[in-house]
Each structure stands twice: as structure tokens, then as C-alpha cells.
């Protein structure tokens, strides 16, 4: 039986932090899905070798500081407007990769107009959409995606559909638009889910490279602080309650990873 220090050698490395992640300690709460999604983006930038031609657009919400953690050029948008910034950027910098990072308040409430029209135009951008059914940053208020009956600081007796209406399935709505090239819903609550989500994020950027329309990855996420749960308890609650409302899997996939397609778009 070997000593543990005999195993900890560069040649035995199987998993390490992505190079494109900064060394800043994230401000997110323990167990927050943001951090996991950040690293999937960072790993994608590393693996596709596109870190130096990627421009991110950060939202208003906890993800506003994404630029402190993922090393690439960033723009910081007003609440909900990230797809408009991304549109302006991509139109003027078509040989760069442009992605937005948006929460459910940002994308599904205040920014519905911007996301709908960006996708409808088929902007060649990637949208990473974090859906945790709550406004995390402002203190756990009800979001358009909040589940029926779910208690939040602005719906303390639970979301009442007679008052607040229904949880919006914005991703399914966006998937209807002809400009959507790749639309998928994933999560990062366990290792299997993270592997799938990683594939989805990477694919979304590859789809952008093919310039065939908008690629959208929704990550059904937890907000353990806003939900007032432990991080692992939040993952369990999400599995039981969020997934039935927001089922995981691909919704639209117009990518055809044929060799000639890859050669046609020399972005990578």
C-alpha cells in the first residue's frame, strides 16, 4: 500500500481547477450552483482554446461578479439587457465568442424582451441561464420562475397563482423561436449532472462557432440561502420539486456535427 504522497503527482492528475478560473475566492454562498457553472464555462474556454476571443456579459444578480472569477473580457449589463449588449458585440465582433450569463429574474422577468428578440433574430451568441426560482441577490424574493406554493420573502405565504400567475417556462418559450439552434436544460447537483451540463455548455459554444443561431443552456440551480436550506438539502429539494416543473434534457438541437460543417466555420 503506497503512501498518499506517492499518488499526488502531476502524472496522476485526474481533476483540477480550470485554468481560465481566477484565484479569487468566490463571493457565492456555500454550495451555490453559480460556482459550478462558472467552472464549466472556464473549462470550455480552456478546452476550445477560445479564452482570448471570448467576451462575456454579466447580469444584475449574484452573477454580476462573474468577471471576478472567469478570466476573459467582460461587459457588465443593466438588469435584463445582457442579450442586447451581446447582440451589439457579436454583430461588431463576429469572429469572437460572446456569451451572456443571466439569472431567472434577469432573463425571465425584466429582460424578456431582450432575450426573446435576440433569440428570434438567431443571434450567434450563447446564453447561460441560471434558474433557481428566486431573486438571490436582493434577498430571496419571488421570481417569475418561483414554483406554485413556494415561499419567498415577497410571497411569504407561498406563490398564489390567483395573484402571481404561473411559473414561467421561458426556456420552452425560447425554444419555439426559429432562431434557437440549441436549447437544453441541465443541472449541476451531482457528478453525473455536472458531466452532462459540461457537455451542454461546451456544445453551446461549439454551436456558436458554427453560426447557426442562438444556443441556450438553462441550469436548474439551487439558492440554499434564499430557499433557507442546507446546500445538500437544497439539491434534494430541487430534485423533488424543481425537476418536475423544469424537466432536464435537450429541447432543441439543430447542430449537425459533421466534419464539413466544422471546416466551414474556422472560428475555433
Amino acid at each position: 500500500m503506497s503512501n498518499i504522497n506517492d499518488i499526488i503527482k502531476p502524472e496522476n492528475l485526474v481533476y483540477k481547477k480550470a485554468d481560465a478560473l481566477s484565484d479569487n475566492i468566490m463571493h457565492y454562498c456555500p454550495g451555490c450552483s453559480h460556482g459550478t457553472v462558472h467552472k464549466l464555462i472556464a473549462e470550455t474556454l480552456d478546452e476550445l482554446g477560445i479564452q482570448d476571443k471570448t467576451i462575456g456579459v454579466s447580469p444584475v444578480g449574484c452573477g454580476v461578479f462573474a468577471y471576478n472569477y472567469i478570466n476573459c473580457d467582460w461587459q457588465q449589463a443593466a438588469h435584463g439587457r445582457a442579450p442586447a449588449l451581446a447582440t451589439g458585440t457579436k454583430r461588431l465582433m463576429p469572429d469572437h465568442y460572446v456569451f451572456t450569463y443571466q439569472g431567472d429574474g434577469d432573463l425571465a422577468s425584466i429582460g424578456t424582451s431582450e432575450i426573446m428578440h435576440a433569440v428570434n433574430r438567431g443571434e450567434n451568441i450563447t446564453v447561460i441561464f441560471i434558474n433557481n426560482g428566486i431573486y438571490g441577490m436582493t434577498g430571496g424574493q419571488m421570481a417569475p420562475t418561483t414554483l406554485v406554493g413556494m415561499e419567498t420573502s415577497s410571497s411569504p405565504y407561498g406563490r398564489d397563482i390567483s395573484i402571481h400567475g404561473y411559473p414561467i417556462k421561458i426556456t420552452e418559450i425560447l425554444a419555439q423561436l426559429p432562431g434557437a439552434a440549441y436549447v437544453t436544460r441541465q443541472s449541476v447537483h451531482n457528478a453525473t449532472a455536472v458531466r452532462k451540463a459540461k457537455k451542454a455548455v461546451k456544445k453551446a459554444f461549439e454551436v456558436q462557432g458554427k453560426a447557426i443561431g442562438t444556443s441556450i443552456v438553462e441550469i436548474v440551480s439551487t439558492c440554499s440561502s434564499g430557499w433557507k436550506m442546507t446546500p445538500t438539502g437544497a439539491n434534494e429539494w430541487m430534485t423533488e420539486n424543481m425537476f418536475p416543473n423544469y424537466p432536464l434534457g435537450d429541447i432543441v438541437d439543430k447542430s449537425k456535427p459533421k466534419q464539413e460543417d466544422l471546416e466551414q466555420f474556422p472560428l475555433k
Partner: peptide
């Protein structure tokens, strides 16, 4: 429980703060 580790990498994958590095070797 270090002796039981098989270096599967699951812990590294799920870590939101990317604080885990995983190694694996055959004896």
C-alpha cells in the same frame, strides 16, 4: 477515509468553488 479513495473525481466535479484536485494511480 483516505484508503478508500478511488480517484473517481466526483468530488472535484461537483465542487462549486473548484477547491478540489484529484489524483489517481494504479498500484
Amino acid at each position: 477515509n483516505a484508503d478508500e479513495c478511488i480517484g473517481c473525481g466526483n468530488c472535484g466535479l461537483v465542487c462549486p468553488d473548484s477547491v478540489i484536485t484529484v489524483y489517481r494511480a494504479k498500484e
